[in-house]
Simulated assay, not measured.
Amino acid sequence: MIPWIELDRAEIPGETATLRLKQRGAEFSIMLGANELMNSRLSGSEEALAELAAEKLAGCAGPRVLIGGLGMGFTLRAALAVLPADARIVVAELVPAVVRWAKGPMADVFQGALDDPRMEISVGDVTQLIAQSKAGFDAILLDVDNGPDGLTRAANDRLYDLAGLARAREALSPKGVLAVWSSGPDDRFTARMKKSGFLTEVKTVRANAKRRGARHVIWLGCR
């Protein structure tokens, strides 16, 4: 069996935790301690995040979309595939090394998505970008952690509490949609979404691109 090789490590701003990029043949993995945050073989639920949000934007001219978390680019690639030619996508990525990995060792995984003129990368905290964007986006797609409870970074909880959801709602256009990815269900977060004024749907999707594997969850909240 081909062994895993550690290619790089990166600190998470404001945290003591370290991300590790590993490779085994053509397969990549991003690890946080013993937890695998993402794997290049498993992209189905991240793609569904973009596809489900895009369905809510049907008929929206020149949609403006914010993606929280670059990761391995699965959500970005799916968004570029389903959104129209006049769409504008901003990807907020907190860890600069993740952008470097995307342009370097994982370039084949991204399949040229970073060269698409419809997208741009903002290196920084997506929470701050949301707070600065009053009605600035038609959709906000969040995949910055393992779900509404921060794993990689405790500060991520600010995205998912009532105050964070209120900021997201203000950053959306009048018919905008908030889409949130999670590795598992969270009834308390569903309740917070509804309490924040979102018309909320909870979707269960498969981790594998062939719609097999673990079951992940996506919340869709419409204004």
Rank of each mutant, 00 (worst) to 15 (best):
K134N: 11
N146T: 15
S133R: 14
E120M: 08
R153M: 05
N156M: 10
F137D: 03
G124S: 05
A113Y: 00
A139R: 14
D115Q: 04
A155P: 01
R118K: 12
A135C: 04
D116G: 02
K134T: 13
A113S: 04
K134H: 12
L129P: 13
D145R: 06
A113K: 00
Q132H: 11
A135T: 11
N146D: 15
T152E: 09
L151P: 03
N156H: 13
D138L: 05
A139E: 15
A113M: 00
E120K: 12
D145F: 03
A139S: 14
D149P: 00
A131M: 05
D115Y: 03
Q132G: 09
G124D: 01
V126L: 15
D138T: 07
L129S: 11
I140M: 10
L114G: 11
M119N: 08
V123S: 03
D115R: 05
A139G: 14
I130T: 10
I140K: 11
E120A: 12
R118E: 13
D145C: 08
L114T: 11
I121S: 09
P117W: 01
A113H: 00
L151N: 08
G150W: 05
D145K: 07
R118D: 13
L129D: 14
F137N: 02
P148N: 03
F137S: 02
P148Y: 02
A155G: 07
F137I: 02
P117C: 06
G147K: 01
D116Y: 00
K134S: 14
A131V: 09
M119C: 15
P117A: 09
Q128K: 03
R118A: 12
A155V: 02
G150T: 08
P148W: 02
S133H: 11
V123L: 05
G124L: 02
D149W: 00
L141W: 01
T152I: 15
D145V: 07
V144S: 09
D143K: 10
L129V: 13
I140R: 10
S133D: 12
G124A: 05
L142N: 04
D143R: 12
T152W: 03
D143S: 09
N146I: 15
N156E: 09
V126M: 15
D115I: 03
L151V: 12
L114K: 10
G136H: 13
P148V: 05
D149G: 01
I140G: 08
T127Y: 00
